[in-house]
């Protein structure tokens, strides 16, 4: 191993110089990523008067007051958080469970339509849901499910991208021999799936649960078309409503706290689980 030999070839930059440039760029980008959240935190902790007086880099002490004002204010933010949580939690559980089941069907069994179905799912994987939004809204109106969470939760069962990730993961983590061993032990297929295969998929399930939860927590387009009742609205709709209203009349401290409470829960969870999430990004997309 001659790894330590640092050499600079004629015409190229020395390793030390390249390293310095790399760190400078990385630190600048880190600043660019975090700066906004720092200002958000500062501003969420200051009163409306302090905010109008001008900007400082030092946090204020009104965070709790602002938060209480939001919770007891006219905008149903607390209810919105609860709604967002219900939709995101239910959608992610259903999506991940049934995507694993779909991937299991393709991975474990051999049947005639297998290749056709697999091809179809992958071919439609990239097509955005927005292009069928019109038909979706009409369908939801037709079956009288406007202002209900069902049209936001149940469709998550058919999630081609989650399916693809699960399928990729199964290739390396779920040997057919295990399924066959369970069969010899007399377990039926459904039980084999639930008690043997699902537990073996835990790492992939965790990663996809997080991704699906975050996607649904953040989702704005579809919920905004389905939910009209203030009591049913999710957080992104309420945030967009803040923008559409005459926002200058609002207590800016409250506006910042509302934004903070839609962003920071995700950041906190992410900081604990980032290792798995960042590691999981590349797996489901492409193969080398």
């Amino acid at each position: 191993m001659r790894q330590d030999k640092e050499y600079s070839v004629e015409g190229g930059l020395g390793l030390t110089v390249r390293r310095v440039i790399a760190y400078v760029v990385l630190i600048l980008l880190t600043f660019l990523c975090l700066f906004w959240f720092y200002i958000l935190f500062i501003n969420a902790s200051r009163t409306h008067q302090q905010l109008s007086a001008g900007f400082t880099m030092i946090p204020g002490s009104a965070l709790i007051t602002n938060f209480n004002n939001v919770m007891h204010g006219t905008q149903p933010i607390a209810k919105g958080m609860l709604n967002s949580f219900i939709v995101a939690a239910c959608a992610s559980v259903l999506s991940v469970y049934f995507s694993t089941m779909t991937a299991y069907a393709i991975h474990v069994y051999d049947f005639k339509a297998k290749k056709a179905i697999f091809t179809f799912i992958l071919a439609v994987m990239m097509i955005p849901t927005q292009v069928t939004a019109l038909g979706f809204v009409k369908l939801v109106q037709g079956i009288k499910l406007e202002d209900s969470f069902i049209p936001l939760i149940v469709p998550a069962i058919a999630a081609p991208a989650t399916f693809y990730y699960m399928k990729q993961y199964m290739e390396s983590a779920l040997p057919h021999a295990i399924v066959e061993a369970a069969r010899i032990d007399g377990a039926n297929e459904f039980r084999t799936f639930n008690t043997i295969s699902v537990p073996m998929m835990k790492p992939a399930i965790a990663v996809q649960m997080i991704f699906t939860f975050v996607f649904n927590w953040n989702n704005y387009f579809t919920p905004a078309l389905i939910l009209h009742d203030d009591k049913k609205k999710t957080l992104p709709i309420l945030i967009a409503a803040l923008r559409n209203a005459d926002w200058l009349k609002f207590d800016m401290g409250q506006v910042y706290v509302t934004i903070a409470f839609s962003i920071f829960p995700v950041i906190i969870v992410y900081l604990f689980l980032s290792r798995f999430i960042v590691g999981g990004v590349a797996v489901g997309s492409v193969k080398g």
Binding site: F98, V124, V131, L134, G135, P155
Partner: peptide, 30 residues
């Protein structure tokens, strides 16, 4: 055993048909 492949695909296919395929057709129709 392999008929279970179809059984396990039912939820995905049913939901896909109802919430993606039918909307696509109504979208084009409209």
């Amino acid at each position: 055993y392999n008929k279970w492949g179809y059984i396990f695909l039912i939820p995905f296919i049913a939901v896909y048909l109802i919430f993606q395929m039918i909307p696509l057709i109504t979208t084009i129709y409209n």
